[in-house]
Design a protein around this nucleic acid. Structure first.
Lengths: 264, 264
DNA sequence: CGCCGCGTTGAAGAAAATCAAAGCACGTGG
DNA sequence: CCACGTGCTTTGATTTTCTTCAACGCGGCG
C-alpha cells in the first residue's frame, strides 16, 4: 500500500493498525494541484472542508481593516489545514500558497466518522490540535517578548525544526521559500525592518537571503540567537497512546463478544 | 442534579443526554480552593492532569530567559486548563491565579475514557480545542498588527465577550481583575506604556483603572476602538453536532442490537 | 509607623515604522 | 538579443511608538 503523507505524519506518533491506515488514507484520496500564490479561500467564506497538504507550502493569514495583514501559520507537507475551524461555519483566516502545491480536501463531518471508528486516531488528532496550539503559543511569545533579530531567528528555526520531522534533509543548507513580505507579516514587523535584520544575520554568516526565500547556513547558531527551546515541538505521548490503544481493545472486545454471542 | 460549571459550559454547545452529563460531572468531582496568586504549576513540571475552573480567574504564562514574561491566556469559570498539554508530558507554560479560585483536577487519561464513551462529548472537546486556537490566533493578530491602544481595547473586550457566555451579568459596568503588569505581559508592552494607554482610554470615558483591575464603562465604544469582530468567538456547529449525534445513535444501536441478539 | 505592592509621571533613548527612491532578477514580447 | 514591466529586495533619511530609567504617590496592613 502506498504510504501517504498524512499516514507518515501520524506514524510519527504511533504505529497504526491496518484498519487505522485505511481510515486515514480515506482522508487523502483526491489530491489536487494548485499553483503558487493561489488563494484557496478567504476569511469569511463557508468552511466545510479540511485539507491535508501532500506537497508544497501554504500559509494562513488575516487581512486587517487598515490594509495590513497578519500571517498566522505556515504549513508544510503532512500538515492538516483547517482543524481550528472545526467549531466554525466560516473561515476565520484565509489560506494561500507559497509554492506550487498539492492538497486533498475532505469534509469536516468525515472527521467525526474517523473519531467514531478509531479511538487511537481520535487521540492522535487531538494531539495534533494540541501541538498546533503549542506552536501558536510559541509564536505568541515570539511576537510579545522578543527583539526583531530574535523573532526572525526563532521563526526560521522553528520551521526548520518542523521540516526535520518530515522527509526533508536538513543536514546541509536549507532553503525556505519565504519572501520577506511574508516574514514581515508573520512577525508583525515592516518589510524594511525585516530586510535590515536579515542583512545583519547575513553578515554574521547565519543565513543568506536568496530571491524569494532564505537559506539557512547555520541552524545551531540561529537557535542560539533565538534562544530556541524545542520543548514545544517534542511531544511525549506514549502513556496517553497506550491508554487509548487499551481502550480501543476493550471496545473491540465488547463488540466481538456481542457479535460472537449473537452468532451462537 | 447539581448543574456543574463545566456542564453549563458544554450545554452552550449542545443539549446533553443524562449519560453525557454524568460522564462530564465526573470531571468536576473534587473542587479544591486556591488563594489569589497561587502558582498551580511552573513550566517544565510534569503534566498529568487537566483542570476545570469552577470559580475565579487564572492565567498561563511563560517566563523568559531575560527575566521578562509573556502571559498567554486568561481563564474564567467554565474553562478547561491544560488541554494544549494533551500531547506533552511536561507543562509548556506556568499557571497562576488572578483571584481566589476553585479548580478540579482530573487525569489526562480520563479524557480518553470520555472520548471512548461519548462521541458527542468527544466532538465538543474538539470544538473547545478549536475555539481555544481561534482565541490564540486573534491574540496573535492583536500582538502583530495593532497599536497599543487597539491592543488594550481588544484584549479587554474579548474577555468581556467571553464572560457574557458564562453566568456573569455584563449589562452594567464590568470590573475585570487584571492588574496593569498582567496587561503589559499579555500584550507585549511595558507597564509604563500600559499605564499611559489606560489613562488615555480613561480620558475618553471608555474605562476606569481601579486598584488591581479595570472597569469597563462602554464596551460598545471599546469594540469600536479595537476593531473588534466577534466572529472568532461565535461557533456555529449545529451541523457538526447533528452528525455526531447520529453517529452516536448508530453506535448505540449496534451495541444494543448485538446485546439483544445475544440475549435471545 | 514604615514597608510593600501597585500605580503614576517625566525625561531621555532605542527600536521599529514610514516615506521615498533605486536596484536587481526574471520573464515576456518585440 | 534587447527593451520593458513586474515583483521582490535594498538603502537612506526622517518620524513615531514604545521602552527604559528614575522617582514619587498612595492605599493597605503588620
Amino acid at each position: 500500500m502506498h504510504t501517504s503523507c498524512i499516514i507518515k505524519h501520524f506514524e510519527n506518533y504511533s504505529p497504526l493498525t491496518e484498519r487505522d491506515r485505511t481510515l486515514l488514507a480515506s482522508l487523502e484520496k483526491s489530491p489536487r494541484a494548485y499553483a503558487r500564490n493561489s488563494v484557496l479561500w478567504e476569511q469569511g467564506e463557508p468552511s466545510r472542508h479540511f485539507y491535508t497538504v501532500s506537497k508544497g507550502w501554504a500559509y494562513t493569514y488575516r487581512n486587517m481593516h487598515d490594509g495590513t495583514r497578519q500571517v498566522l501559520d505556515i504549513y508544510v507537507p503532512g500538515d492538516i489545514v483547517g482543524l481550528r475551524e472545526f467549531a466554525f461555519s466560516h473561515r476565520i483566516t484565509g489560506l494561500a500558497l507559497l509554492s506550487d502545491a498539492e492538497l486533498c480536501a475532505f469534509p469536516k463531518t468525515r472527521l467525526t466518522d474517523v473519531f467514531s471508528q478509531s479511538l487511537l486516531l481520535c487521540n492522535i488528532f487531538f494531539m495534533i490540535a494540541a501541538r498546533d496550539q503549542a506552536i501558536l503559543l510559541e509564536r505568541l511569545v515570539n511576537l510579545g517578548r522578543r527583539s526583531a533579530r530574535e523573532k526572525v531567528a526563532h521563526f526560521l528555526v522553528e520551521i526548520a525544526e518542523r521540516l526535520k520531522k518530515t522527509d526533508v534533509d536538513t543536514s546541509g543548507n536549507l532553503r525556505l521559500p519565504l519572501p520577506q513580505v511574508l516574514l514581515a507579516d508573520a512577525l508583525g514587523l515592516s518589510v524594511v525592518h525585516i530586510n535590515r535584520t536579515l542583512k545583519e544575520l547575513k553578515n554574521d554568516n547565519l543565513l543568506l537571503p536568496t530571491n524569494g526565500g532564505v537559506e539557512l547556513l547555520n541552524i545551531k547558531a540561529l537557535e542560539e540567537v533565538a534562544g530556541f527551546d524545542p520543548g514545544y515541538l517534542e511531544e511525549n505521548i506514549d502513556d496517553m497512546l497506550d491508554h487509548a490503544r487499551e481502550a480501543q481493545l476493550r471496545i473491540d472486545a465488547a463488540f466481538t463478544n456481542a457479535d460472537d454471542n449473537s452468532e451462537e
